[in-house]
Protein backbone atom coordinates (compact mmCIF):
# COMPACT_ATOMS: atom_id res chain seq x y z
CA UNK A 1 0.00 0.00 0.00
CA UNK A 2 1.45 3.31 -0.99
CA UNK A 3 1.33 6.04 1.59
CA UNK A 4 2.64 9.50 1.14
CA UNK A 5 5.47 10.47 3.47
CA UNK A 6 4.15 12.63 6.32
CA UNK A 7 5.07 16.26 5.93
CA UNK A 8 6.87 16.45 9.26
CA UNK A 9 9.26 13.67 8.22
CA UNK A 10 10.08 15.45 4.97
CA UNK A 11 10.51 18.67 6.86
CA UNK A 12 12.67 17.03 9.49
CA UNK A 13 14.85 15.35 6.88
CA UNK A 14 15.26 18.64 5.10
CA UNK A 15 16.22 20.41 8.30
CA UNK A 16 18.74 17.68 9.11
CA UNK A 17 20.20 17.98 5.62
CA UNK A 18 20.45 21.74 6.00
CA UNK A 19 22.05 21.43 9.42
CA UNK A 20 24.47 18.89 8.00
CA UNK A 21 25.44 21.09 5.09
CA UNK A 22 26.18 24.02 7.34
CA UNK A 23 28.57 22.07 9.52
CA UNK A 24 30.31 19.84 6.95
CA UNK A 25 32.85 21.90 5.04
CA UNK A 26 32.52 21.97 1.28
CA UNK A 27 35.76 20.71 -0.21
CA UNK A 28 37.54 22.99 -2.67
CA UNK A 29 40.52 21.46 -4.48
CA UNK A 30 43.19 23.61 -6.07
CA UNK A 31 45.66 21.78 -8.27
CA UNK A 32 49.34 22.64 -8.35
CA UNK A 33 51.65 21.86 -11.25
CA UNK A 34 55.33 22.33 -10.42
CA UNK A 35 58.06 21.34 -8.01
CA UNK A 36 56.87 20.48 -4.52
CA UNK A 37 59.86 21.84 -2.65
CA UNK A 38 59.99 25.21 -4.40
CA UNK A 39 58.93 28.64 -3.17
CA UNK A 40 55.78 28.62 -5.33
CA UNK A 41 54.55 25.46 -3.59
CA UNK A 42 55.32 26.99 -0.21
CA UNK A 43 53.51 30.21 -1.12
CA UNK A 44 50.49 28.20 -2.23
CA UNK A 45 50.61 26.27 1.05
CA UNK A 46 50.56 29.58 2.96
CA UNK A 47 47.56 30.63 0.89
CA UNK A 48 45.78 27.36 1.75
CA UNK A 49 46.40 27.87 5.48
CA UNK A 50 44.82 31.31 5.24
CA UNK A 51 42.00 30.09 3.01
CA UNK A 52 41.10 27.52 5.64
CA UNK A 53 40.92 30.16 8.36
CA UNK A 54 38.39 31.96 6.16
CA UNK A 55 36.73 28.66 5.25
CA UNK A 56 36.16 27.92 8.92
CA UNK A 57 33.68 30.80 8.92
CA UNK A 58 32.24 30.36 5.43
CA UNK A 59 31.98 26.57 5.27
CA UNK A 60 34.74 25.56 2.85
CA UNK A 61 37.75 23.32 3.28
CA UNK A 62 40.55 24.07 0.84
CA UNK A 63 43.16 21.54 -0.27
CA UNK A 64 46.19 21.77 -2.51
CA UNK A 65 46.93 18.75 -4.72
CA UNK A 66 49.90 18.20 -6.98
CA UNK A 67 49.25 17.24 -10.56
CA UNK A 68 51.41 16.55 -13.59
CA UNK A 69 51.17 19.00 -16.46
CA UNK A 70 50.10 16.32 -18.90
CA UNK A 71 47.26 14.78 -16.88
CA UNK A 72 45.36 17.52 -15.11
CA UNK A 73 42.16 15.93 -13.75
CA UNK A 74 38.80 17.62 -14.29
CA UNK A 75 36.75 19.03 -11.47
CA UNK A 76 39.32 21.15 -9.62
CA UNK A 77 38.32 24.70 -8.69
CA UNK A 78 41.42 26.08 -10.41
CA UNK A 79 44.97 25.14 -11.41
CA UNK A 80 48.15 26.88 -10.28
CA UNK A 81 51.10 26.40 -12.62
CA UNK A 82 54.70 26.88 -11.51
CA UNK A 83 56.18 24.96 -14.42
CA UNK A 84 56.66 27.67 -17.04
CA UNK A 85 54.58 29.46 -19.63
CA UNK A 86 54.21 26.69 -22.22
CA UNK A 87 52.89 24.30 -19.57
CA UNK A 88 50.42 26.94 -18.29
CA UNK A 89 49.21 27.72 -21.82
CA UNK A 90 48.86 24.03 -22.63
CA UNK A 91 46.80 23.34 -19.52
CA UNK A 92 44.59 26.37 -20.16
CA UNK A 93 43.67 24.73 -23.51
CA UNK A 94 42.58 21.55 -21.80
CA UNK A 95 40.58 22.81 -18.80
CA UNK A 96 37.62 25.18 -18.59
CA UNK A 97 38.52 26.75 -15.24
CA UNK A 98 41.17 29.27 -14.25
CA UNK A 99 44.83 28.45 -14.79
CA UNK A 100 47.15 30.74 -12.87
CA UNK A 101 50.78 31.09 -13.94
CA UNK A 102 52.90 32.03 -10.93
CA UNK A 103 56.48 31.85 -12.27
CA UNK A 104 56.74 32.88 -15.93
CA UNK A 105 57.12 36.58 -16.78
CA UNK A 106 57.17 36.36 -20.58
CA UNK A 107 55.08 39.00 -22.31
CA UNK A 108 54.23 36.74 -25.25
CA UNK A 109 52.17 34.67 -22.82
CA UNK A 110 50.16 37.77 -21.77
CA UNK A 111 49.63 38.81 -25.38
CA UNK A 112 47.78 35.57 -26.03
CA UNK A 113 44.91 36.92 -23.94
CA UNK A 114 43.31 33.57 -23.16
CA UNK A 115 40.09 33.91 -21.24
CA UNK A 116 41.06 31.39 -18.55
CA UNK A 117 44.82 32.04 -18.25
CA UNK A 118 45.90 34.34 -15.43
CA UNK A 119 49.29 35.58 -14.19
CA UNK A 120 49.97 36.71 -10.64
CA UNK A 121 53.72 36.98 -11.21
CA UNK A 122 54.54 40.35 -12.84
CA UNK A 123 55.38 40.33 -16.55
CA UNK A 124 58.93 41.15 -17.68
CA UNK A 125 57.64 44.39 -19.17
CA UNK A 126 56.05 45.43 -15.89
CA UNK A 127 59.43 45.05 -14.22
CA UNK A 128 61.16 46.93 -17.06
CA UNK A 129 58.66 49.79 -16.87
CA UNK A 130 59.07 50.03 -13.09
CA UNK A 131 62.83 50.16 -13.47
CA UNK A 132 62.60 52.81 -16.19
CA UNK A 133 60.42 54.95 -13.89
CA UNK A 134 62.89 54.58 -11.05
CA UNK A 135 65.97 55.28 -13.17
CA UNK A 136 64.60 58.69 -14.16
CA UNK A 137 65.43 59.75 -10.61
CA UNK A 138 68.32 57.50 -9.67
CA UNK A 139 71.98 57.64 -10.67
CA UNK A 140 72.68 54.12 -9.49
CA UNK A 141 72.39 51.33 -12.03
CA UNK A 142 72.56 48.67 -9.35
CA UNK A 143 68.83 48.14 -9.00
CA UNK A 144 66.19 45.61 -9.82
CA UNK A 145 62.46 45.04 -9.43
CA UNK A 146 60.65 42.57 -7.23
CA UNK A 147 57.03 41.49 -6.85
CA UNK A 148 57.66 41.03 -3.14
CA UNK A 149 60.41 41.60 -0.58
CA UNK A 150 60.98 40.10 2.87
CA UNK A 151 61.83 43.58 4.23
CA UNK A 152 58.58 45.11 2.97
CA UNK A 153 56.52 46.26 5.98
CA UNK A 154 53.96 48.78 4.71
CA UNK A 155 50.32 47.89 4.06
CA UNK A 156 50.56 44.96 6.47
CA UNK A 157 53.26 43.39 4.28
CA UNK A 158 55.06 42.90 7.58
CA UNK A 159 52.24 40.61 8.72
CA UNK A 160 52.33 38.46 5.60
CA UNK A 161 56.14 38.21 5.81
CA UNK A 162 55.85 37.15 9.46
CA UNK A 163 53.15 34.58 8.74
CA UNK A 164 55.19 33.07 5.92
CA UNK A 165 58.35 32.95 8.00
CA UNK A 166 56.45 31.29 10.83
CA UNK A 167 55.12 28.60 8.48
CA UNK A 168 58.22 27.89 6.43
CA UNK A 169 61.16 29.29 8.37
CA UNK A 170 62.39 31.28 5.41
CA UNK A 171 61.81 34.59 3.64
CA UNK A 172 58.96 35.04 1.16
CA UNK A 173 60.15 35.69 -2.40
CA UNK A 174 58.42 36.71 -5.64
CA UNK A 175 57.24 33.26 -6.65
CA UNK A 176 56.03 32.47 -3.13
CA UNK A 177 54.03 35.71 -3.11
CA UNK A 178 52.62 35.02 -6.61
CA UNK A 179 51.44 31.54 -5.59
CA UNK A 180 50.05 32.84 -2.29
CA UNK A 181 48.19 35.50 -4.29
CA UNK A 182 46.89 32.86 -6.72
CA UNK A 183 45.32 30.85 -3.89
CA UNK A 184 43.94 33.97 -2.22
CA UNK A 185 42.35 35.29 -5.41
CA UNK A 186 40.71 31.89 -6.03
CA UNK A 187 39.47 31.96 -2.42
CA UNK A 188 38.02 35.42 -2.98
CA UNK A 189 36.15 34.16 -6.02
CA UNK A 190 34.74 31.18 -4.10
CA UNK A 191 33.72 33.26 -1.09
CA UNK A 192 32.46 36.44 -2.70
CA UNK A 193 31.18 34.81 -5.87
CA UNK A 194 29.59 32.07 -3.72
CA UNK A 195 30.60 29.39 -6.17
CA UNK A 196 32.96 26.46 -6.53
CA UNK A 197 32.23 26.08 -10.23
CA UNK A 198 35.56 26.44 -12.11
CA UNK A 199 34.05 28.48 -14.96
CA UNK A 200 32.29 30.84 -12.55
CA UNK A 201 35.51 31.24 -10.56
CA UNK A 202 37.41 32.19 -13.73
CA UNK A 203 34.67 34.66 -14.64
CA UNK A 204 34.78 36.24 -11.17
CA UNK A 205 38.55 36.62 -11.35
CA UNK A 206 38.35 38.37 -14.70
CA UNK A 207 35.34 40.59 -14.05
CA UNK A 208 34.96 41.30 -10.36
CA UNK A 209 38.10 40.66 -8.35
CA UNK A 210 39.43 43.41 -6.10
CA UNK A 211 42.20 41.74 -4.19
CA UNK A 212 44.19 42.90 -1.17
CA UNK A 213 47.67 41.58 -1.98
CA UNK A 214 49.08 43.32 1.11
CA UNK A 215 50.83 45.82 -1.16
CA UNK A 216 48.39 48.72 -0.69
CA UNK A 217 46.30 49.32 -3.78
CA UNK A 218 43.61 46.76 -4.65
CA UNK A 219 44.74 44.34 -7.36
CA UNK A 220 42.60 43.21 -10.28
CA UNK A 221 43.19 41.19 -13.45
CA UNK A 222 43.68 42.86 -16.82
CA UNK A 223 42.15 41.55 -20.05
CA UNK A 224 45.54 40.01 -20.67
CA UNK A 225 45.10 37.91 -17.53
CA UNK A 226 47.90 39.81 -15.75
CA UNK A 227 47.33 40.83 -12.13
CA UNK A 228 47.69 44.58 -11.69
CA UNK A 229 49.97 45.23 -8.75
CA UNK A 230 52.49 47.67 -7.31
CA UNK A 231 56.12 46.53 -7.65
CA UNK A 232 59.12 47.05 -5.39
CA UNK A 233 62.42 48.67 -6.31
CA UNK A 234 65.57 47.26 -4.76
CA UNK A 235 68.76 49.31 -5.02
CA UNK A 236 72.14 48.21 -3.71
CA UNK A 237 70.38 45.36 -1.93
CA UNK A 238 67.90 47.60 -0.13
CA UNK A 239 64.20 48.12 -0.65
CA UNK A 240 63.97 51.78 -1.68
CA UNK A 241 60.64 52.48 -3.39
CA UNK A 242 57.39 51.24 -4.81
CA UNK A 243 56.31 51.47 -8.44
CA UNK A 244 54.47 53.20 -9.99
CA UNK A 245 57.20 55.58 -8.80
CA UNK A 246 55.83 58.69 -7.13
CA UNK A 247 56.79 61.90 -8.93
CA UNK A 248 57.37 60.05 -12.19
CA UNK A 249 54.05 58.24 -12.61
CA UNK A 250 50.66 58.37 -10.90
CA UNK A 251 51.13 56.00 -7.95
CA UNK A 252 47.51 54.89 -8.29
CA UNK A 253 47.75 54.04 -11.97
CA UNK A 254 48.95 50.46 -11.94
CA UNK A 255 48.55 50.37 -15.72
CA UNK A 256 51.72 52.44 -16.11
CA UNK A 257 53.45 49.08 -15.57
CA UNK A 258 53.36 46.62 -18.46
CA UNK A 259 50.95 45.93 -21.29
CA UNK A 260 47.70 47.51 -20.12
CA UNK A 261 45.31 45.79 -22.55
CA UNK A 262 45.15 43.06 -25.15
CA UNK A 263 46.79 44.03 -28.46
Amino acid sequence: MHRSIPAWITCGALLLALAGSSTAAEKVTILFVGAEAGPAWKGAEQGIIEANILGRFTGQGYELKRSSASAVPKGAAAVIVAAGGPAAAGISDRVDGAVVNVTDGSDSLRKRCRANLFHTIPSDRMRADALAQWRRNSESQNNHVRAWHPDFVKFAARDLNNRYRKTHGEAMDDEAWAAWAAVKTITEAVTRGQTTDPIAIARYLREELEFDGQKGAPHSFRDTGQLRQPLLIVEDGKLVAEAPVRGVADPDDLDTLGLAACP
Binding site: I53, L54, F57, T58, A156, D159, L160, Q214
Partner: peptide, 19 residues
Protein backbone atom coordinates in the same frame (compact mmCIF):
# COMPACT_ATOMS: atom_id res chain seq x y z
CA UNK B 1 41.78 42.64 7.86
CA UNK B 2 43.06 39.77 5.78
CA UNK B 3 39.93 37.61 6.01
CA UNK B 4 37.69 40.60 5.22
CA UNK B 5 35.17 39.85 7.92
CA UNK B 6 33.32 41.38 10.82
CA UNK B 7 33.15 38.74 13.56
CA UNK B 8 30.34 39.07 16.10
CA UNK B 9 31.16 37.68 19.54
CA UNK B 10 28.61 37.21 22.31
CA UNK B 11 29.18 38.58 25.81
CA UNK B 12 29.50 36.96 28.30
CA UNK B 13 29.54 33.68 26.34
CA UNK B 14 32.54 34.66 24.20
CA UNK B 15 31.22 32.63 21.28
CA UNK B 16 31.55 33.77 17.68
CA UNK B 17 27.88 34.04 16.74
CA UNK B 18 28.27 35.32 13.20
CA UNK B 19 30.77 36.41 10.56
Amino acid sequence: ESTNMVHMISVPGHEVVDN
